[in-house]
């Protein structure tokens, strides 16, 4: 699909203003965030590709409906991630609170590991890949999500605060605890490094 409007050189906030008048401009925002949000939802949920696409569509419609609530004192990316977070968490709850097995690829797992500890040999890490995946999957969403936002989505603490609507101190604590939980479960030997 070729976009019927041109948003080149325009900031997110400028596009938001234009989208309020013409929904076609929403396509620019969707283009910019669709992939990032797809992976974000995949990382925090257990949903299939089709489910994620449905959720994504609902998220974009929500974004469109709430355009007038957006204030540019907040980064647009934080705002759209927040809506995505809320909607995805609602969906997880709606589906009966099943265990949220996440879909992390190898790169994700490496990023996770490197965020917590400096391993001497990457080979040692590779051996533990499956264990790492299992540990991450078992972590409560409360700790897992801030870690995903920090280490996989590479968001700052301020952005995570805005996305999760939690005080910065709480975000820092959750990440610290999550890291500790992750490291202590992954391998007591690694933990002691």
């Amino acid at each position: 699909m070729s976009l019927s409007v041109n948003c080149e050189g325009k900031t997110d906030s400028e596009v938001v203003e234009l989208a309020k008048e013409n929904p076609d401009y929403l396509a620019c925002l969707m283009e910019r965030y669709e992939e990032k949000l797809f992976y974000y939802i995949r990382r925090i949920s257990f949903f299939s590709k089709e489910d994620i696409e449905d959720i994504l569509q609902e998220v974009f419609i929500k974004v469109y409906k709430n355009l007038n609530d957006y204030e540019d004192s907040l980064k647009f990316s934080s705002w759209i991630y927040r809506i995505t977070h809320n909607h995805t968490v609602d969906e997880i709850r709606k589906r009966g609170g099943k265990k949220t097995a996440i879909s992390l690829d190898k790169d994700d797992l490496f990023k996770f590991i490197k965020s917590g500890v400096n391993l001497e040999k990457e080979v040692a890490v590779r051996e533990k890949m499956n264990k790492v995946r299992a540990v991450i999957e078992q972590m409560p969403l409360k700790y897992r999500e801030p870690m995903i936002l920090r280490f996989l989505e590479e968001k700052s603490y301020d952005e995570i605060m805005d996305i999760l609507k939690k005080p910065k101190g709480t975000v820092a604590t959750l990440i610290k605890r999550g890291k500790k939980m992750f490291l202590s479960q992954i391998d007591p030997r690694i933990h002691s490094l």
Partner: peptide, 8 residues
């Protein structure tokens, strides 16, 4: 493209 098109 499909998600964007369908949403619009």
């Amino acid at each position: 493209k499909q998600v964007i098109e369908e949403t619009l």
